[in-house]
Design a protein around this nucleic acid. Structure first.
Lengths: 174, 174
DNA sequence: TACGAAGTGGACTAGCCAGTCCGGTTCTGG
DNA sequence: CCAGAACCGGACTGGCTAGTCCACTTCGTA
């Protein structure tokens, strides 16, 4: 694939930025027209770079997944597993809070290899926290991820407290 | 308003049942055509009883709210406040698990007087549990409701455990 | 049973959205 | 600076959905 022309490159960036912003605000159901409008571009231009709207959603989701993957790697490098788990999810929550619509985009991309890779890393993070005694062992890693994921879904200035509470619940051995 | 003719009454029931079922399965975005098809009725018949689709959604939501309200009243009658809270949310979760699409319908109806009344009852339930020492007091009732609400959103055979964990977290005083 | 009111549903409208096409514009390499 | 390839976006298509209309059917009553 030959490199894009300078103007095409510029427009591609604008489209991706506009899409990320629009999806964050309104979820994956915003119209392509709205995204093109924000990007200052005709909507045909969007479809030239992305064959379908789903591919655009996937592209935006991939950006977010890459960021999360990096955070997960960092957390895995942390020697204290409990601390690593906490750090990762707090950072993820901060990303999440900056526009919850992206989450719905991610949900549509659970099958992507990148997403599965991220899931693998997150699962490992939980497994290590359990081995270190920071998380009760009578729940599956999947359950832990689901629980934390939903705590993170709280309002913009609530997720921190909610996360704390859920992590407390996960530490308890009732 | 004069009473409905027998056939109209029958069709109204069918429409409401079909709508509740369809909304539960697919959320409030299922088409009116699909609902009419399930009810074995032309879609114009739906619009004769409900001026807009939103009114149909509201009608279904009201049924669910009424059921929850009844559960809340029962829980408020329970002398042990912590137990009442637990019982109410377990029952609510069971309702919820039988079709999560209804939840999205409820979200669109938070402004309805019935919904506010239910919210009032649920808030009181939390307040009493806090007064009885069953729930930590450093979180608002609204936070508690949001937290439990998201725990309930877990998969069909997970919510029970998730609810337990969140309630553990809410009991802890970290 | 017969008649009018109430009810019905297929066909229609209007608006929105993803995706396509093509005549005109802009970039880039020689 | 010029030729032509790459790119652009307004206009178009087709499909889907909420909501309307009206010729026909069904129900309740006297």
């Amino acid at each position: 694939m030959t490199p894009l022309r300078a103007d095409a490159e510029r427009n591609l960036r604008r489209v991706l930025d506009a899409a990320a912003e629009a999806f964050a605000e309104h979820g994956p159901d915003v119209s392509v027209d709205e995204i093109a409008r924000r990007a200052g571009v005709g909507h045909a231009t969007v479809f030239r770079r992305f064959e379908t709207k789903d591919e655009l959603i996937a592209a935006v989701a991939r950006q977010r997944i890459a960021a999360l993957q990096e955070l997960a790697e960092e957390a895995l490098a942390e020697p204290d597993a409990g601390k690593g788990l906490n750090t990762f999810f707090r950072a993820a929550a901060e990303l999440h809070a900056s526009g919850r619509g992206i989450y719905e985009c991610l949900e549509r991309c659970v099958g992507m290899p990148e997403a599965r890779e991220l899931r693998r890393a997150a699962t490992e993070l939980v497994r290590r926290a359990q081995a270190a005694g920071a998380v009760r062992t009578d729940v599956s890693a999947e359950d832990v991820l689901a629980l934390i994921g939903s705590a993170i879904n709280a309002g913009p200035r609530r997720w921190s407290q909610h996360l704390t509470i859920v992590l407390d619940g996960l530490r308890a051995t009732s």
